[in-house]
């Protein structure tokens, strides 16, 4: 029971972490709290669903389709709507992103209706048995892939010129401009890449959760908690926090009942905010400096 709980937590943690990276980076680099972030997860899941229905494509392979789609959506929204308001006030960015969230969710309600859907694979429902512990193949694949994509995102930010330019803009916008970086272009790129990574998380989520236009709302709460826990803008922090969050949820669900896992998660959130608002790995008020 104890081991199974740990395994359950670890298997879910990767997806939660991957779903949070984009939110955390956008906050860290641009000082935007993107309330439409949950909708990106939802769109990723629908791309996987559509490709699965039409072409019989495996939802994990659908990531290759979802990432470009989400990149375009994230880039366009950033350049057209968020760049003009992001440096005015927190208030305006929150209202705009909430508006985008409503538009995206309602668009999907119009296209797909509010019905709950799911994707099936040949291996769903099958598990690997390691002694008393059961590891469903779907969850194992989702966990491994999420860590892989997260690692790629980390390497991109830290090892490529473009990634370095994003981080430089986050640290000091004016100095970055003097180095020949165009902040507006970097912001568009950051918005697009964050959405793309989130779309990949959405594909993974399509195999684990029922798909509906409000799928993102269930994620948004977790995304808040993990961002704050991991430290704003820190990719490794977010991944570790994703596992921590999922482990806490798994234990709450096993030992207190499934009803309590959200309450425990929110309590954790409040405690972290009060005790260590810069998160476990973040620098103090990194996001504030960017905004």
């Amino acid at each position: 029971m104890f081991l199974q709980t740990i395994v359950n937590g670890l298997l879910m943690g990767g997806v939660y972490g991957l779903a949070t990276i984009g939110f955390s980076v956008v906050w860290g680099v641009m000082g935007i709290i993107n309330l439409a972030h949950g909708a990106y997860v939802m769109i990723g899941a629908y791309v996987a669903y559509v490709l699965n229905q039409w072409l019989g494509l495996d939802p994990f392979l659908a990531m290759a389709g979802a990432m470009p789609v989400l990149f375009v959506i994230g880039y366009v929204l950033q350049v057209a709507l968020l760049n003009p308001v992001m440096r005015t006030s927190l208030l305006l960015t929150l209202v705009v992103t909430f508006g985008i969230d409503l538009i995206l969710i309602d668009t999907f309600v119009q296209i797909f209706s509010s019905d709950v859907r799911g994707v099936q694979t040949a291996y769903s429902g099958r598990s690997l048995a390691l002694g008393p512990v059961l590891i469903p193949y779907v969850r194992l694949a989702a966990a491994v892939l999420s860590v892989a994509v997260a690692t790629a995102a980390y390497l991109f930010l830290n090892r490529t010129r473009t990634g370095q330019a994003i981080l430089a803009t986050a640290l000091d916008r004016e100095a970055a401009r003097l180095m020949g970086i165009v902040p507006e272009r970097i912001y568009g790129l950051t918005g697009g890449l964050s959405a793309a990574v989130t779309g990949a998380a959405g594909c993974l989520a399509s195999t684990l959760f029922p798909i509906s236009p409000t799928l993102g709302l269930t994620f948004l709460g977790a995304v808040f908690v993990i961002t704050v826990l991991g430290g704003i803008g820190s990719v490794p922090g977010v991944i570790l926090a994703g596992f921590a969050y999922a482990l806490v949820q798994a234990f709450a669900s096993t030992y207190l009942g499934a009803n309590y896992q959200e309450i425990v998660a929110f309590s954790m959130f409040l405690v972290v905010l009060i005790v260590r608002p810069q998160g476990l790995f973040g620098k103090r008020f990194y996001g504030e400096a960017a905004s």
Partner: peptide
């Protein structure tokens, strides 16, 4: 909701 979203974005812009 879609119209509310458009309205929110339009007001801010």
């Amino acid at each position: 909701n879609l119209l509310l979203g458009v309205f929110l974005v339009a007001v801010v812009m």
